[in-house]
Design a protein around this nucleic acid. Sequence first.
DNA 1: AAGTAAAATTAGGCTAATCTAATTTAATTT
DNA 2: AAATTAAATTAGATTAGCCTAATTTTACTT
Lengths: 218, 218
Amino acid sequence: MHSFTEENYLKAIYKLQETNGEVVATSALAQVMGVHAPSVTDMLKRMAGKKLVTYQKSKGFKLSEKGKKVAVGIIRNHRLWEVFLVDKLGFRWDEVHDIAEQLEHIHSEDLVNKLDAFLGYPKADPHGDPIPDANGVLPKSKSVLLSTLKAGDEGTFTGVTDHSPAFLNHLDKSGISLGNSIKVKGVEEYDQTYTLQLKGKKEVVVSFKVANSLLVRG
Amino acid sequence: MHSFTEENYLKAIYKLQETNGEVVATSALAQVMGVHAPSVTDMLKRMAGKKLVTYQKSKGFKLSEKGKKVAVGIIRNHRLWEVFLVDKLGFRWDEVHDIAEQLEHIHSEDLVNKLDAFLGYPKADPHGDPIPDANGVLPKSKSVLLSTLKAGDEGTFTGVTDHSPAFLNHLDKSGISLGNSIKVKGVEEYDQTYTLQLKGKKEVVVSFKVANSLLVRG
DNA sequence: AAGTAAAATTAGGCTAATCTAATTTAATTT
DNA sequence: AAATTAAATTAGATTAGCCTAATTTTACTT
Ligand SMILES: [Mn+2]
Ligand SMILES: [Mn+2]
Ligand SMILES: [Mn+2]
Ligand SMILES: [Mn+2]
């Protein structure tokens, strides 16, 4: 079907469109793919030939409907495998991403759907990212960054925007886990340090850097 | 690490050495890999450069210790994934091979060992093929072909030598499953048709072609 | 509007893995 | 032992995905 490389480009373009708007720049894609700009131009021409992206010379490009479908499929695979690795095999949430990067490219509709059933049709992966259903429908998130809350606000910790092992480990050490109820006790004026009250646990102080990578739902 | 292609070559060479003796011919490998002879020569030169095979121009080649280790690792992956697909996801034994051909190339020691534990350290895959342990040790099989038995002999059905879905489906239809106790009631002189008594079940008649693809242990 | 800086593309090359056609080496037959 | 056939290798191309260096296009300043 499609090569791993194509699938990785599609996924990268999808995520860039999600965060940076419809049209993607060659340089931005080169950066996230870890290749140089001419390689992207080259690849995009081939992908445009296969109708996976719409491409206008020097104007940028975006996914076609077909390309979007493939991208969402890969994301579905990735997140379901992450759930498997954590829930069934006992991996920690900071260990699974790289393995899922490989597993996401296994081609079998049947497999991913049976895996989905085996896992009990999870709605989110171990990092709180929503899992597209078999039709490619991805629930719209209602979460906001913890850094947008003020003293007195409350919410539930639903996800992270930084997926690095370093950050995830830091959260573990701080005793903050997905699903925790969080109340903002105070925000330091000077450096925006957050003092949090975790439901039934002790208070935790987190930097702005951390607060700015945590998603909460009111 | 190694490319999928390299891994597939290594696995193919390993299996050829197992059945056809130490030294493998270019043409034989080309045949099972589904490529033409010059491609094999080419690939072998590269693999010899990486010390995965020992190669003497026009004399044939065999796996190095290093190459053998990689091959057995791939086989371990393949067979464990097949167990997962059948035991956990509910696939039939005739459906899993192609998916396992993909899964076997996932690179993670940690993953395969956790999978092994999750499955309860199975000794054989759904087709009865032995699973190498984490050290690459592969139990020597004590099974023989059903076609070598005579009237009155008994045994347990432990594996197949033909892994095609067509054959596996045929066995299902005949009501013959892995682990069944089998007694040879008689062998037809003319065409070597076998009449079998399955423990607690009705008699089954199978052709020589079938008897010649079934492994039994005395 | 012209000049400069940044972004994108073109041109030309490289490697892995494949191919076909031609040639060489080894094995069999007579 | 010579002739023939079969197996293997060499020679020369191709494709996907990448690279660097050079050029062109677009965006931003003055
Ligand atoms: Mn991930
Ligand atoms: Mn994730
Ligand atoms: Mn198999
Ligand atoms: Mn098998």
